[in-house]
Structures are given as structure tokens and as C-alpha cells.
Design a protein around this nucleic acid. Structure first.
Lengths: 346, 346
DNA sequence: CTGAAAGCGCTTACAG
DNA sequence: CTGAAAGCGCTTACAG
């Protein structure tokens, strides 16, 4: 209950020094003799002094907080565990360093821009995480103009003054396609994410490149917004066609799980009559039936790395890009040799 | 780029008044003539003055931010869309009121307590949301001691000085059981959430009461931690028993979806041979097959109400409890008459 | 209705 | 190595 009662002045008086010196001792700055420093710190401890963050903020013009503004629509936000995990990773770094996370969830791109401006106008944060990178992402020039440090998750497609923390998702898609091709599939489709998102396009490009590598004809691709609903619709369209694919590579797990539902509904057995692969390895993926063959993702690791990088950037003014281990294929039960291959093998 | 350059002193000088008066005008306090106020505000507008939140924080001892600390384990956090939606609801209120949300995700109960203490030591927030209420929740005495305003989601089982914003989930469970009983089920089991959580116990109690109302014998109940993995295990245990139930009422959708997977794996058809119901109506629930009969939840509405209440409490020092509309049963495809009933009906 | 001053609790040149 | 003072940009009694 005594909290916030004792101030730097109390410590100074009790230690018989000036407030300035207490501040120097606290911040480990040169100009205080070791003995004096020790004495000051001891007095501070005795008194239970907790330096006021608000006062420090005012004089240092720092907020000791990092920001994350999320502009996903509520549905895809809810069915995708990326953010909870990413945030858990971020927090594991921040909590030990006395930093806080300010989270903003906004419904539109306009609201997103307003949110960033508000954050800097209010001096709420010292830097932000840029997730879900888009093509020619408007946030990069915006933050540059605002002078707010940032770290991007993945490398932007335009010029960027910010360090990037990346996980290459190309190998995961490539492995998925190669695996399906090896099983004997020739009509492989892709249910892609939004083409406004960098990772939507990148996974799609990886899919097409992998098809090419495997010597397979170009497959059908349907673009979605990454939502469960869109994944469901796209699957239905694909499966009710004349030349329905025998395998579908999904750009994320939630859509793949929805696809599983559609297949069940249509009486198409997975993996016997249809193979599917996902992306992200969300918790659900191993508990649906059949368990989903998918690509691992490590959002917690990404969160830690991004937080570490952003903090370094803020403190030192510079930080290197970091490349995290690529996502890999995890083979479970949702893919198998296509029906005709099986028949001819019998 | 001019941001944060112009201060209250500039406005005062330009308007020919004292800083104090500018402050009064800004805060709509009595003691400024209408003309003067208008003139001051006009000057402020011209100059593009944005009052410094940091300076206001220091002198008012307020942070203009609200806190949410989440202590769920990463898995259940990720598969349950409650938090993203709840937060979206909270933000929709906060953003218009110049408030920010500081989010803390912690791995343990000790870390949780430390997090709250840190939040008040640093004066990061003016109040917090208490979610996932537990029995004899230690956070209530803790926050009382710390003097931090809070709002609870649901009513605690012990004494609490804080307003509660509640959604009664009892009717939803009661309706689920009544519906299954009406379909002809007599062996209905419950896969419950954690008994340390108030909503885990409450749903379980509602289940047992509903069974009683329906004149059915006490069903089997298995307690879990609400996770997908636990829901899967519990379902397997139930279905491989001699006296396997013909229907299962799950305490949340993620577990019900895992249950669907187990049933598929065991070759038990849903709903023909097994009926299941969920709780929460998460986005996935309508896209699995068969689509899940479940109970609606409105986390966004809950978020708005909780934010409104907490802000009222902080500003006026008091706020009333609020009761939101109860969750209701949503009938989809995962429940039907039990197999033997069907047979005898043929 | 208005002004001048002190205060919120730190940090940071500037002297010594 | 140390002290006294000014400053960060607001708010808030206190006088008039």
C-alpha cells in the first residue's frame, strides 16, 4: 500500500545525496563512485522505492511499451491461433525487460492508420510489430514518416528501413507438393490466401513453382481471404467440378479443416479419394480426422525473435534482419496415393 | 512531423492567456468564459496542439489505459476464439475514448500475480478486466489490496467489490440437454471444462440439473482443462466404454470438434450413432461435418459491455452489474435421435 | 472569470 | 566524483 509513496527525493535525502545522483545510480551511469552507488541502491531498497514510470516517460520521451495493431477481420482472427501464440512469444521477452505490450484491434484499413497515428501522437509505444505484410504495404511509408521504429514479420516487397524477422514458408509448400506428387497425384489444386497479403502470394508462387519442378501441369488455384468460410466455399467449388483435383494444398489449416468438412459432406473420403495438406500446424490439426498433414509454423519463436529485434532497434538504433528456420512438412494422415493409382496397384 | 512540438505554453502565449486557463478550456472545466474557451480551442486547433498524454499522466496519476492479463496455456488460448473476439469488442469502445489496451499473456499463476503487481507499480493501467474467473479467485483480494479497479466477467463465487458483467450460460446447457432428451437420448455424458474455473463448474452443474429435470439418470462426466487434446482423450474414453453414451454435451466447441474427430476415427457416425453438442459457436463449428449443434456466445458484446462498465467505474467510482442476454442453443446437424430409437421407429 | 506558481517525479546538462 | 537547477508538459489549488 506504500507503493508510489516514496520518491527519488526521499531516497536522496535519506542517502544524503542529490536527486540527480540517485538517478545516475539507478541508471548505472558513470559519475557515481562505487561506494556511493551501493549506498544509494541500498537505501532505495530499504525504502522500497519504485521509480515512477510516468515521470521517466515524461523526461525521457519513452514509453517503455511496444505496440501491435491487428487489422484482421474478426472471423479469421478467431480461427487462426497465430496471434495468441505470437503474442505469447513477444510477452516472454517483454515481461523480463519491464516493457508492456499495447494491443489494438481494428476493423478496417482506415482505422488501422488512425490507430498508428494515435499511438504516436499519444506516445504510447516506442516501436511496433508489423504483421500480415501486404503488397506495397502503406504502413511502411506511414511509420517512416511518423518516425516510429518497427520490425516487419517477413521482408516487405518494397523498400523498407526496418529490420525484418522472417520465416521462409516456401520450402514447406514445396515439400507438400513434392510429397503429393510422389504419392502419384497429378491434379493438385491450391486454395490460396488473400493476394493482398505477401504470404498469400508467396505460398501461391511456391505452389506453382513446385508443380513446375515436379513436372506437373499448372493446377487450379482459388484465392480466398484465408477464412474458414472461404476455404469451405472454395473446396466445394473445386470438388464439384468435372476435373476435380485429387489433392488440395491449402494456404492455412483453418481452411484445410473446413475442406475436410466439405469432403465429408460430399461423401468424398479423405485421404482415399482426396488428399489435403494444410499450413501452420494449429492445435486442431492433429485432432481432426484424419489428422492433417501440414506444415509446421513457430509463431512463439517468431514472437520472441521479433521482440528481441525491436527492442535492440529501439535501444541501439539499429538491428539486423533475422532468418528463422524454415517451416517444414509434417506428415500425418490426410494425404495418400490417389484412388486410381491405388486401383492399378491392386 | 510537427507532432509533439507545440505545447500548452505555445497555445497559452498565442492565445494571450495562462497555461492553466488553456488546461481548463481543454478539459471543459468551469471557470473559463465561453468566448475565451472558444478562442483558446481555436488557437489550439490552428497550432495543431496535441496535449501530451505523458504529461497528463504524470500530473493526473492516470494512464488512460486498461489492462488484460491472460493466464491460459498457449494451446487453449490458440484454439479458443474467445479472446480475439472479446478484445475486438473492448477495442471498439476504447478507441473512441482515447484509451489503450495493455495486454499481458503469462504462463503461470505466479507470473499472473507478478504481472498485476507490475502493472500497478508502473501505473500502466487504470483498471483491468478479470476473465476466466476461478473459485475463490485470488485476483480479487489481490486487486482489492492493490487498489486497482476491475470488472469481472461473470459473478465471482466469493465476495467482490467489483462490478460484474455476466452472460448466463446455464440456459444454453439446459436447452442442449432438454433437446437431446426430447430426441430420445437417455445416456448423455458431459465433457466438462476445468473445475477450477467458474464456468467449468457452472456448466457442469447446469448439465446435472438439466438431466434431473428431464428425469434422466445421472450421466457420466469427465473433467478436462478445456483443451482440444483433453477433449479428444475424454471422448475416446467415453466411447470405448461398455455403456458408452449416445450423446455427449461438451463444455466448449474446440473439445466438441475434437470429439467429432475421435468419432470419425472410431467409425462411429455422428449424428446417427452419436449426438454431440458444443458451446460457444466458434467459427469452425458450422464448417465441420456435420455442422455442430451448439450454444451461441457473444464475446464481442461481452467485450463492449465490460469496457463500458470498467470505464464508468474508473470515471465515476461506481458501476452497476450488467446481465447480458443468455446464451441459447443453436440447432445444426450434430445431434439426432439415438440409433435404437430410430430402429424401433422403423 | 483569470493569472502566477507550485507540483507530478523523474533526467540531464552545467558547474564545480 | 558530486550538487543545484532547469526541464519534460501538463494540472491544480490558491489568490485576486
Amino acid at each position: 500500500m506504500n507503493t508510489q509513496k516514496v520518491t527519488i527525493a526521499d531516497v536522496a535525502k535519506r542517502a544524503g545525496v542529490s536527486k540527480g545522483l540517485v538517478s545516475f545510480a539507478l541508471n548505472d551511469r558513470p559519475g557515481v563512485s562505487p561506494e556511493t552507488r551501493t549506498r544509494i541502491l541500498a537505501v532505495a531498497g530499504d525504502l522500497g522505492w519504485k521509480p515512477s514510470l510516468r515521470a521517466r516517460s515524461l523526461s525521457t520521451r519513452r514509453s517503455f511499451a511496444l505496440g501491435l495493431v491487428v487489422a484482421r477481420n474478426p472471423e479469421v482472427l478467431g480461427s487462426d491461433p497465430f496471434f495468441p501464440s505470437f503474442i505469447a512469444g513477444v510477452e516472454s521477452i517483454l515481461s523480463d525487460r519491464g516493457q508492456a505490450l499495447v494491443l489494438s484491434v481494428v476493423p478496417s484499413e482506415e482505422a488501422e492508420i488512425r490507430s498508428y497515428r494515435q499511438l504516436v501522437d499519444d506516445g504510447r509505444v516506442d516501436g511496433v510489430f508489423l504483421t500480415d505484410l501486404r503488397h506495397d504495404d502503406p504502413r511502411i511509408p506511414l511509420l517512416t514518416e511518423l518516425g516510429l521504429p518497427a520490425v516487419t514479420l517477413g521482408r516487405p516487397d518494397g523498400p523498407s528501413p526496418f529490420p525484418a524477422v522472417s520465416i521462409d514458408d516456401t520450402p514447406g509448400i514445396a515439400e507438400s507438393v513434392a510429397y503429393l506428387a510422389r504419392l502419384g497425384h497429378r491434379r493438385i489444386a491450391h486454395i490460396a490466401g488473400s493476394s493482398t497479403m505477401l504470404h498469400g502470394t508467396r505460398r501461391r508462387d511456391a505452389f506453382e513453382a513446385a508443380l513446375c519442378t515436379a513436372g506437373l501441369p499448372l493446377g487450379q488455384t482459388i484465392e480466398t481471404d484465408f477464412s474458414v468460410a472461404a476455404g469451405s466455399d472454395a473446396t466445394r467449388r473445386l470438388l464439384t467440378r468435372e476435373d476435380a483435383p485429387t489433392a488440395i494444398v491449402y494456404a492455412n489449416d483453418p481452411m484445410a479443416i473446413a475442406g475436410l468438412g466439405v469432403a465429408h459432406e460430399l461423401g468424398i473420403r479423405v485421404p482415399d479419394e482426396l488428399s489435403i495438406t494444410g499450413f501452420d500446424d494449429i492445435d486442431f490439426s492433429r485432432y481432426v480426422y484424419p489428422p492433417l498433414t501440414t506444415v509446421s509454423a513457430t509463431p512463439v519463436v517468431w514472437g520472441r525473435a521479433a521482440a528481441t529485434t525491436l527492442l535492440a532497434l529501439i535501444e541501439t538504433g539499429a538491428a539486423d534482419d533475422v532468418n528463422l528456420p524454415a517451416a517444414r512438412l509434417i506428415i500425418r494422415g490426410s494425404a495418400a496415393a490417389p484412388a486410381h493409382t491405388r486401383k492399378s496397384a491392386t
